[in-house]
């Protein structure tokens, strides 16, 4: 299968993620969209690693796949922290609408 398909799929996922982040106000949805973008990048990594595989050197190109595992682990950690923040937010202001969160201004 040509690499192009993977690229387009990743692009589509990434765009969905971006549009989601930009348009939605619910923090949880934004969070999910960020994950979507992250996974679009993961998909690309795996795809390219497969593309570069060499018959003579079976381990070549496996770096990227290992990398993806790392990213997933970090992402999992990030999710746990992020969700914790959101929960704390909800407790404090009883909303997960990011438009209420403009404290950065001052």
């Amino acid at each position: 299968m040509p690499i192009n398909y993977y690229i387009f799929l990743a692009l589509a996922l990434f765009c969905i993620g971006i549009i989601g982040v930009l348009t939605r106000r619910n923090a949880i949805i934004i969070f999910m969209c960020i994950e979507l973008m992250l996974n679009a990048a993961n998909l690309l990594l795996v795809a390219f690693s497969k593309m570069h595989v060499d018959v003579n050197q079976p381990t070549a190109g496996s770096d990227a796949q290992i990398f993806v595992f790392f990213i997933m682990v970090v992402a999992a950690a990030e999710v746990s922290v992020g969700l914790a923040i959101i929960v704390m937010l909800y407790r404090n202001i009883h909303s997960v609408d990011v438009n209420f969160l403009n404290r950065l201004k001052n």
């Binding site: 971006i18 982040v21 930009l22 348009t23 106000r25 990011v98 438009n99 969160l101 403009n102 404290r103 950065l104 201004k105 001052n106």
Partner: peptide, 14 residues
């Protein structure tokens, strides 16, 4: 320029 809206920052970034 610093509105404090997260999405505005995001938009600028994109």
């Amino acid at each position: 320029l610093q509105t404090g809206q997260v999405s505005a920052y995001m938009l600028l970034m994109v």
